[in-house]
Nucleic acid binder design. Structure first.
Length: 409
RNA sequence: GCCCACAUAGCUCAGUAGGUAGAGCACAUUCUUGGUAAGAAUGAGGUCACCGGUUCGAGUCCGGUUGUGGGCUCCA
């Protein structure tokens, strides 16, 4: 009951409106299509920027592919056989049918195939923040967590069979490290094994399931096995995080794909000079930017860690005599890399504080005659704690440490 | 997509017995210069989701459509 109340307060749809993060508009835009407002957009920028940077450090290469592709692409990939009811109707141009992409894989496969690949090229880690569209039945749409257009932090790993165990290990650790950066540290892992209806040789299933299982054991996190719950094209690991209200959310997924390498006849030339079939691993770690954002909002109840907060510092001059002082402080804070707003409205200080609290701004700097004379700032935190007057440099150091360490206050 | 519920201002909601709409917040203008979560006045803002029916008259009753919420199923 209490938890229900708390969940209601943290509902990302409510906070999304209250904090001006995003909206939907079914009359004019369509259900399940998200409008990211400036503040939500900034958080998304920061999430993507952080993740992209560590992807580059982790040996991933970024690619960009179109939103539509000819029907022959989706026939070859098998999507028109197995996935058509989730795809938007085709667009016809010059007597050719083009489909909006529900997944990025076929395009990445085409990049792989654009030249002859040597075993020396592998592993190839191809990443794209790809926006995909899927027709989801009307009853299942929900805020940011179930939508019809979304951007996956997608990547495909192409590797030789002997590289596969190490790649699995890497991607699993990579995923957990990334989720930890966003404040999730309670994980539950699931291995989904071969279903009855499947493609691919038994030997490959054996190797893949074994590699996944060993990676799970090495990870040290609790895991379960969902017997027969894998996709028809390969086994997978799903990572569930537990949020602040102890609700599980599936974010990361790491999937083998025995289907596309066969259908598109992917090869690499081995040391023996002969063509070999590479392993292909599909993975999305945050899952989709939309769902991840929804979960993040609820996890923090809108009180984002300082590094992700759109406005980190609100300057509150007590009277308009302090407005110029506030602008001067704001300039110095911006120079120090902080995101700042000055509340120079003619509201009273109490109201300014209340508004900053409702906006869930982590730091409020109260600037009155005393502070201006002493050249100081008076710090109030969004949790109500007052740190009192201090030198600006002291505050900057304190805020920068919170940003650096990605801590929530 | 299925089952149940709901749809009044940007948001949260009132609307009593069917008699052609109200509050608070937000917004605008003005006054107010106030030390840690709401200073005050005035103003603007609605085809009561849409279509049809019953009625002298429908926000209110009936049917349909669309959308939303909760559950089921499915997924990033």
């Amino acid at each position: 009951m209490q938890r229900l109340e708390e969940a209601k307060k943290r509902d990302h749809r409510k906070l999304g409106r209250d904090l001006d993060l995003f909206s939907t508009n079914h009359e004019m835009v369509g259900g399940g299509l998200i409008l990211w407002h400036p503040k939500g957009g900034l958080i998304r920028y920061l999430m993507e920027e952080h993740s992209k940077r560590i992807h580059l450090e982790g040996g991933y290469e970024f690619v960009f592919t179109p939103h539509i592709g000819r029907s022959v692409l989706w026939e070859t990939s098998g999507h028109l056989d197995f996935y058509k009811e989730s795809m938007y109707a085709p667009i016809e141009i010059d007597n050719q049918e083009y489909y909006l992409k529900p997944m990025n894989c076929p395009f990445h496969v085409q990049i792989y195939k654009s030249r002859v690949r040597s075993y020396r090229d592998l592993p190839i880690r191809m990443a794209e923040w790809g926006t995909v569209y899927r027709y989801e039945r009307s009853g299942v749409l929900h805020g940011l967590t179930r939508v019809r257009g979304f951007t996956q932090d997608d990547a495909h790993l192409f590797c030789a069979p002997e590289q596969m165990p190490e790649e699995i290990d890497k991607v699993l650790n990579f995923s957990i490290d990334l989720l930890k950066d966003f404040g999730f540290d309670d994980f539950k892992l699931y291995l989904s094994t071969r279903p009855e209806k499947r493609v691919g040789e038994e030997a490959k299933w054996d190797a893949a399931e074994d590699a996944l299982l060993q990676a799970l054991q090495r990870s040290g996190y609790p895991y379960d096995i969902n017997e027969g719950d894998g996709a028809f094209y390969g086994p997978k690991i799903d990572i569930y995080v537990t949020d602040a209200l102890e609700r599980p959310w599936q974010l990361s997924t790491i999937q083998f794909d025995f289907n596309l390498p066969e259908r598109f006849d992917l090869t690499f030339i081995g040391p023996d000079g002969q063509p070999h079939r590479p392993y292909m691993i599909h993975r999305a770690l945050m899952g989709s930017m939309e769902r991840f954002f929804g979960v993040l909002i609820e996890h923090y109840g809108g009180n984002f860690p300082v590094w992700l907060t759109p406005v980190q510092v609100k300057l509150i001059p007590i009277t308009d005599t302090q407005n110029d002082y506030a602008y001067e402080i704001a300039r110095k804070l911006k120079d120090a890399g902080l995101r700042v707003e000055v509340d120079d409205s003619d509201a009273r200080m109490n109201a300014k504080i209340r508004n900053a609290q409702l906006e869930k701004i982590p730091y409020m700097l109260i600037l009155g005659a005393k502070e201006m004379d002493a050249g100081q700032v008076n710090v109030r935190l969004r949790n109500g704690k007052r740190l009192g007057a201090m030198a600006l440099e002291e505050f900057i150091a304190l805020a920068q440490e919170a940003i650096e360490k990605k801590i929530a206050i």
